Each structure stands twice: as C-alpha cells, then as structure tokens.
Simulated assay, not measured.
Amino acid sequence: MSHPASASRYFVPQPSYWPLVGSCALLLLASGAVLMMNSVANGGFVVLAGFAVLTTMLFGWFGRVIGESEGQRYNLQVDRSFRWAMSWFIFSEVMFFVAFFGALFYIRVLSIPDLASPAQAALWEGFQNSWPSAGPAATDPFSKMHAWGIPAINTLLLLTSGATLTWAHWGLVAEKRSQLIIGLVLTIALGVLFLGLQVFEYAEAYGHMNLKMTTGVYGSTFFMLTGFHGFHVTLGVTMLTVILFRVLKGHFTAERHFAFEGVAWYWHFVDVVWLGLFIVIYWL
C-alpha cells in the first residue's frame, strides 16, 4: 500500500515474520536461563544469543513501524489505536508495581505486627514490631537506607528530567527543533546520572551496610522495588535515545508526534513511581 493514509482507510500491514523472531528470542532466553540455573555448560551463551535475537527483532520491527509512520500510512484512527495501546501498557505497568507495593504493605502493616503479637510470643520470643526488619529468623545486622543523600538527589534528578522533557515537548509543538533536541539531551543525561547513582547506592549497600537481597523481607523488597524501577528507567532512557535520533533525522511534526508523546507518558509514569518509592521505601 503505497498511498498516504486517508481519513476513511485503516492501514492494514503486510504479514510479518518479526513476531516469530521474537518468539525464538524468548525461547532462547528462557532455555538459557533454565540451563544456567541448573549449572549446565553454555547456558550463558544461549542467553546471550536470545538477547542478540531480541535486539535484532526490536530494531527490525520498530524500524518497519517507523518507516510506515514516516510514509504517512497511519491516519488518525490508527493514531488513536496507538494511544489506547500505550495507555493499556502503562496501566499494566502500574498494576505490576501495585503488586510489589501491596506486598510491602502486607509485610509492614499485617505480617510484622502479627509475628510480634503476644499470640506468637512462644514461637518468636523477643521479636519486636519495628521497621525495618529482616524477619524474626534473621540474625545478621544491617543498616537501613536513609532518604537524605543519594535517594533525595535521585528524586531531584527525576523531577528535573520530567521538567526538561516537558520543555522539549513545548519545543516540538512550537516547531523549535533546537529546544526539542536540548530538552531531550538533558532528559537522557539526567536519567543516566540517576542510574549511575543507583549503582553506587547498591555498591554501598552490599559493601558497607550488609543490605542484600538475602537480608530478609527488608532487603528483598528494597531491591525488588528499586531494582525494577531502575530497569524501567533504563528502558525509558533507551526509548528517549531512539526518539532523539529520530528527531535528528527530521522526524515528527507539531501535529503528528505520538511516538514522542508515548515515551513522554512512560517517563512521567517512571517519575511518579519513584516518588512513591522515595516516600514508602526511604522516608517512612
């Protein structure tokens, strides 16, 4: 279909082999992970092969979608479909974090007080209802993560990155490409700095605070929540970098730029999740 999309025609893409490639990548990743967990030789190479195939799929499939978009094959009806798809994707991510926040709520509000109650005294004598806690069976001392320091700096970085991304969006709408590019570069730089500080924080936790994944419920919930958030920041930085390269190639107009908006939605979602983490994990 070589003509531009009209208001009455919904673009139907040609059959694609990229979903099959993606399925092969997932099969390799799962198989390699199982081999590694069972200490089977070459399991790590199978995982690396899975990542290589997955990366190839992402470049090929998204490249095809970008080509169709720049070829003006998508009308406003397709644009609305993309918006709904991104909205449901972000909703699924919200529920993903809600599950972990719910686990933390259960531990702090229900489980720990119950284990420290008089009814459990014979089983866990001397266990106190206090947080942070590694649980009644834990014996190794550890230090709690405090809100002020790296966590507060990272909060400022992410809040600032949300502002720079909004400023970049204003530049796109106003057709000020230099403002758009500068805003994107600043947002990406702030995201990378956030990740660097998080790596340093983890090194300090393991090296000097004896806070690890194995440090009972406090260590496991801390690293699961902040670690998955860091993974989402990494995805966001990757997507923003792709958007930056597309901007440098002259993509997007003031009227049609949903790819930029979709990534901006995702980045603001990551910002909001971090505010919740900062309050619940570090502050309270």
Score class of each variant (00 low, 15 high):
R177P: 09
T214F: 08
F222N: 00
L184G: 03
F200T: 14
K212C: 11
I188Q: 02
V233T: 07
A168C: 06
A205W: 03
E175D: 14
I182Q: 00
L172R: 08
W170C: 08
G227Q: 00
L184M: 11
K212V: 12
N210D: 13
G230F: 00
M209E: 14
H232E: 07
R177D: 15
H208K: 13
L184F: 11
T214N: 10
G171W: 00
L211V: 05
G196F: 11
G196P: 12
Y218G: 03
G191I: 05
L211G: 02
M224Y: 02
L165R: 08
V199H: 09
M213Q: 10
T221I: 07
F222I: 00
L211S: 05
Y206F: 15
L225Q: 04
T215M: 03
Y218N: 03
L211P: 05
Y206C: 09
R177L: 10
F222L: 01
F200R: 14
H169Y: 07
L165H: 10
L225F: 03
L180Q: 04
V185K: 05
G171R: 01
G196I: 10
H229N: 03
L186T: 07
Q179M: 08
G230T: 00
H169D: 07
G230A: 11
M224S: 05
V217K: 04
R177S: 15
L190T: 09
T187K: 08
L186V: 08
L197C: 15
K212I: 10
L197F: 13
W167G: 07
S178A: 15
V217Q: 04
T234P: 04
L172P: 06
T221A: 05
V199S: 08
Q198L: 09
E204Y: 07
G207E: 15
S220L: 01
H208Y: 15
A174C: 09
V217A: 15
V217W: 06
T214H: 10
R177M: 12
M224G: 02
Y206Q: 06
